[in-house]
């Protein structure tokens, strides 16, 4: 491998990281409220609303059942409308975010379900409003689980971002497909795969470290 190829890989790392981080952030901007709404409107939730829950639940299930590689192609018109083109890093962020939202929504819902019902009851007994319960109780008490969920999301989106390489999405996946697959340059493919593995490990390590620090439940 020559220096130009190494520079290309370095650029790829940057593109992958920006795609993954930006779409995770956007994913949470929509996915967190979605997950909270799912939890709140559930029949055992703090403001049960069967219709709302059924609609959101259905949308999330649809979103989660479309394979990412299909979604990627399916929403190309929408991506064009939003970004102006259907290839490159910026364009890949659109399908990544859309794939992430239902996934994140479900993760958030599951995390909130772990919060002790008694604590929610306590807050209600003190006259807390639904919003106060969400912000001051649910998100605080579930923060470790939410963070662990975010680590998993980051990993999943990293995997998706590599898939976007098949349609010229940019980043490490793109390089692996173009050089490793179309041009049989196995060494480049192996290097990109190793880098993706290292990134995944780093995300997980960072997530675990922070969540351990945040968790005050086991400090005996």
């Amino acid at each position: 491998m020559n220096s130009a190829e190494w520079i290309m890989i370095a650029k790829g790392i940057g593109q992958t990281l920006s795609m993954v981080l930006v779409s995770t952030v956007f994913g949470y901007v929509f996915g967190l409220p979605l997950g909270v709404t799912l939890f709140v409107s559930d029949k055992d939730g703090i403001k049960p609303n069967a219709k709302l829950y059924a609609v959101l639940d259905f949308i999330v299930n649809i979103g989660r059942s479309i394979p990412f590689i299909i979604l990627l192609v399916l929403i190309i018109p929408f991506t064009r409308l939003l970004v102006g083109k259907a290839y490159g890093t910026a364009a890949t962020i659109v399908p990544l975010t859309i794939a992430a939202i239902p996934f994140i929504g479900r993760m958030v819902e599951t995390s909130l379900k772990e919060v002790d019902k008694g604590v929610i009851e306590m807050a209600m007994s003190m006259g807390a409003s639904t919003m106060e319960i969400i912000v001051k109780v649910l998100l605080v008490e579930a923060r470790v689980s939410l963070l662990n969920g975010a680590t998993i999301c980051l990993g999943t989106i990293l995997g998706y971002s590599a898939m976007a390489g098949t349609v010229g999405g940019g980043g490490l996946g793109d390089i692996a497909i173009r050089y490793g697959y179309y041009r049989y340059e196995t060494d480049i493919m192996i290097v990109t795969v190793v880098i993706i593995i290292v990134l995944m490990q780093l995300f997980q390590l960072a997530g675990n470290t922070v969540s351990k620090k945040l968790d005050k439940r086991k400090q005996l």
Binding site: D116, G118, V119, E121, V140, E141, D215, K216, R217
Partner: peptide, 9 residues
Amino acid sequence: FQGFNLLMQ
């Protein structure tokens, strides 16, 4: 409450 219901975090 019986289970105290403190905010653990």
